[in-house]
Simulated assay, not measured.
Amino acid sequence: MVGINVTIGLPMARHPALTPTVAASVEQTCFSFAAQKAARAIGRKYDAALRSTGLSNWQFTLLMMLVRDEPPTVGTLAQHLATDRTTITANLKPLVRRGLVRIQGDAEDRRIRRVMLSDEGHTLLGEAYPLWQRAQDALGQQLGKIDQDAFRAAVNALSA
């Protein structure tokens, strides 16, 4: 069914005309596309740098979030990593199986699950950190003269 544009009295198309020009415009202007493309490119660089440890970039990030004075809860991890508890739980399972992480009930409230880095996890993270640092430095060089603080501020504004 075709509607009528009441403002100008002309028939409205049910769907806009999708042309290669429209698709190219979306590719060039879409924030989501740009963010996904950048995330994949950046992630591949960190994954390559960490490959010898057997950790992915995501696993490194998750383990790094456990280096705290007080072990975080699954919910806190989900909040800090801008994801949900189910995703965190699923991503913790292989780390638990590898002996890198322990999950246990809170001392005061057993319903709350706290996530802790094991000694093995701490050792592996210590080996991975210099590899991450080299990848971080290389990406900083590749980004060059752009305002890297503004880049991080923009990302933080979007994930708040």
Rank of each mutant, 00 (worst) to 15 (best):
Q136A: 09
A41G: 04
T21K: 08
A138R: 11
L131S: 00
G126F: 01
Q133I: 06
E127R: 14
P130T: 00
E127W: 00
T73M: 13
A38T: 10
F151R: 07
L124D: 03
R134L: 00
L125V: 08
N57K: 12
V115T: 09
F60N: 07
D147E: 14
A153W: 02
V115E: 01
R14C: 03
M1E: 12
V6A: 06
P20R: 13
N5K: 05
D106W: 08
L100W: 15
V74F: 09
R68T: 13
E27N: 01
R85N: 13
A41H: 10
R14Y: 00
V115W: 06
D119L: 01
L63N: 08
F151P: 03
R14D: 01
R113V: 01
A135K: 01
M1Q: 06
F31G: 07
A128I: 00
R102G: 06
R114Y: 03
A24R: 13
D109G: 01
I4T: 09
A128K: 03
F60Q: 06
W58Y: 10
P94T: 07
T21C: 05
R98Y: 12
T87E: 15
A138W: 09
K37C: 05
R110S: 10
D109E: 09
A157E: 10
T19M: 09
Q148R: 11
L139V: 02
T19Q: 07
T87K: 15
K145N: 08
T7P: 04
F151G: 07
R152M: 15
A128L: 13
L131I: 00
K45C: 05
T73F: 02
S25K: 12
D47K: 11
L66T: 02
G9F: 11
L95G: 04
V26A: 14
F33H: 14
L50G: 12
R51T: 11
L92D: 00
V22H: 06
D147C: 08
M65Y: 05
L117Y: 01
R44P: 02
L124Y: 08
T19A: 06
D106V: 05
P71F: 11
F151T: 12
Q141Y: 09
V74H: 10
L55Y: 13
Q79D: 15
A34N: 00
A82E: 07
Q36C: 01
A34W: 13
S32L: 08
L139F: 06
I42L: 05
A157T: 15
Y46H: 02
E120S: 14
L77C: 07
G121K: 11
T89H: 15
L95K: 11
A107I: 09
V22F: 08
Y46Q: 10
P16R: 00
F60L: 13
D109Q: 12
T61R: 02
G105M: 05
V96P: 00
L143S: 04
A39D: 13
R111D: 14
T76S: 04
L63E: 05
L10A: 11
T29P: 05
A39V: 07
Q79I: 12
G140H: 02
H80S: 13
D109C: 10
A49Q: 10
K145C: 12
V96W: 00
L55S: 12
T29K: 15
T61I: 05
V74E: 14
S159D: 07
L131N: 02
L143F: 13
